[in-house]
Design a protein around this nucleic acid. Sequence first.
DNA 1: CGATCCCGCCACATT
DNA 2: AATGTGGCGGGATCG
Length: 883
Amino acid sequence: MAPKSPIKNEPVDLSKQKGCTPERNPITPVKLIDRPQPDPWTPTANLKMLVSAASPDMRDREKKKELFRPIENSEQSDTPDALQYDMVDDSTVDEFEKQRPSRKQKSLGLLCQKFLARYPSYPLSTEKTTISLDEVASILGVERRRIYDIVNVLESLQLVSRVAKNQYCWHGRHNLGQTLKTLQEAGELQYGELMTFFQHKEQDLEYRFVERKKDSQDRLLLDFSEPDCTSASANSRKDKSLRIMSQKFVMLFLVSKTKIVTLDVAAKILIEETQETVDYSKFKTKVRRLYDIANVLTSLGLIKKVHVTEERGRKPAFKWIGPVEFPVKTDEPRGHSPISDPLPGTQKGACAPYQIYATGKQRFTRHASFSGAQPCEGARRKVSSEPSSPHQERQACTVNSDDYCSKMINLAAVCRQKIEEDSGNEACATKPTLNSIRNPSTTSPLPLHPVLGDSDFCVNPLPQAVFPVVQADVPSLSLADEVSGPQAPHPSTPAASKTENGKPTLLPNQSFLCFPSSSLFMLCGSLQENNLCETLPTPGDAGNRSGKAQAAVPPAACQKRSSHKCALSSAPVDDEEPAAKKQTMEQSDVPLALVVPKKPFESPVAESTPRSGCTSAVHLGAFHLDFASPVAPEAADKESTQEQEKWFQNKNPDEPSPGKEHISQENAHQPFLPQYLYVQPTAGLSSFNFLLPANQAPGAVSLAASQLPSLSVPCVMVPSAALASFPLVCSPTVTSPLSPVPDGSFSAAASVNFSMSGLASTTPLFIGTTAVVTPKVSPASAVDPQQPAHPALHLSPVLARSCGAVKPDSPACMGHPVTLLKLQQPSSAPLTPKSIRPARHEAFFKTPGSLGNPVAWKKNEGSQTRNTSSVQRRLEISSTSPD
DNA sequence: CGATCCCGCCACATT
DNA sequence: AATGTGGCGGGATCG
């Protein structure tokens, strides 16, 4: 085997440890050749070579479809093949060149495969494999930096853990299921609810993500990190974004119904507050990182590349092919649950180990698992970091509170200002920007986009498919099940169909259900729960309960980790405590979404289609688009890039974009709208456009109750999550109009409402057409981190109340949620979305139309029609109450 | 030309 | 200060 195909060898370089300049000249074959030759071949080296060589080849082959998975077991097997290939290929010099380490050969994905090939997927529990970064780097012939990329991702999934300085401990996939479960739970908690509920789109998801992201993400991260790597926690902030991003990214998949996530969307979601910076460049950077992560995940056989075709075009996306939900959390683990089918390939082995694992320990509580899981590291790091914890924790409750708070505060301040200013004008638009910036920013998908956005949003398509899908998925989760099951069963869909003209599906969407989402529970606290349950038909009480439990649990779990930190985040959550409030507060965001579009679980149909990726994919795409293109109105023409940039950078074309951060505020201030306010979010991606009727003043609040019902529908369309954050003011008038807006109009909506009245307390409302919003942000005034937005679906009642009543301090939150629920349900049929829906739809449609916004609207309309339908729009209201 | 993403500078963290 | 980590984004490749 002499063949050391130089080329290949080169990369490999047995030689040495990092020292070897890996390849500064990758290209030049000569050098390559030289290097390799000189080196003595060690067995390892050969292996390396082989592997490296093979990998590419293999990869190519497989590439066609799936990625790899090949290697795992077999280093050996690969080798042979590799050799052969090499031999053949290499035979000639030319070939060398060819093969020369093309980019592909150097790809992170390939590198990761090589890396993984070195270790058993399911190592014996007893043995512990330590990984030396330097060693691996040298073996694989890459710079250490690259290894970090791989290891960080693996660490996020707990496949490895850092033991010490250059040392990592290989755990293998034993815990993978657990980890994924945990992530799923975490994701659900944070975003999940929405997601679940919302079938449609990911918009929701996105929103949620965005919104919540901050908090939750952080939390999650913390949690994980703590357990695993404490360092993270200890580390400061910066912490390994890659790790965090990886977890978040995975969470997106796990929470996603479709299991398909486009890069755009993911990037948006992941962009955290970043506020200021938000520009396009940031987005690009995020995308780059996602590619890195995706490559590793692909190598792990957890995802695969796919393309989502949208109207506009196809977007790159990734589909989760790893184990899918672990529906039941608890039980599954044990047996082997099948968590799923893991990978298509052979991997099955995994299962076995899995089982074992499960048996072994921790599985009980998922939470526990986390915490328990990593021994080594946790210990180490934690120790270090811990100290401060108490302190932090406290705040933690607030969670990130600092950040949050600050943000909130800022927002509030901004809002106020705006309001004031606006007041002058009258309309008060709030400014989304702030929020957006901070948190949510990322997301806002705006409907407005000329191009995509709306339509996507609207989701025309989705409706049917989506729902079904959702349902299907949802069930898996206990919460979901509960909720959905009971409530919505059929109604929605059918009803929907009826109602709407053409789109039945839409209806479903539109209709909202009240779910007792986990969050709800939380929010409601004990009180709520009951109500909820009652309201909802819930099929199974148990279900509900479970739901609750879950809800409660998860957080706890997350937090659980021994670490204090965890506590922080989770703290509120803990079931134990009565402090429902706290929880609520903290999570407020999350839970909020009370109302959800219904989904008929049961409908078989839906199930059947569940995954239809297409649909979902589409949706996603749409979302993406939105995000991406948020550009919207303004930039429509411009290139995408530019557009994007604009978005990010410019908030509004019209408006000057101030500086980054502040800008948003400024924007808010701006009086723009004569009639409507258009707000673009600065923050990154999200660009939202809001149109608010200027007319109404904040006073609108009045609407409240009475309007509620009606309102819900009409007014606002808020696409992005971002919106959520913003406080909106509705104009009463608008609402009233429920009427007619042409559907076509798009999602965009008009929002309206609210008066935040002042803002003082301001409760921010969010209205999402589709989505929802989670208003985490909302707290305009108060800003508590906690506050939660409640997603009220309906907003109406809630809103009204909240608005009116809203008091920041008061625990309104709790109340709100409840209210909401009631509202919907009140009708006996919660479901009856039908009746409602129609109205809403119209309203929505009309609204926009009526609103007519400027450019944005136009664009939107043109592009799509959002369909009203689509999403149901939910309004969410967040009341922020604060404190 | 857009999608990917390698490469390695450089800042920050840890030792 | 040295070394470990890893954010980040320019710009090369790929398709």
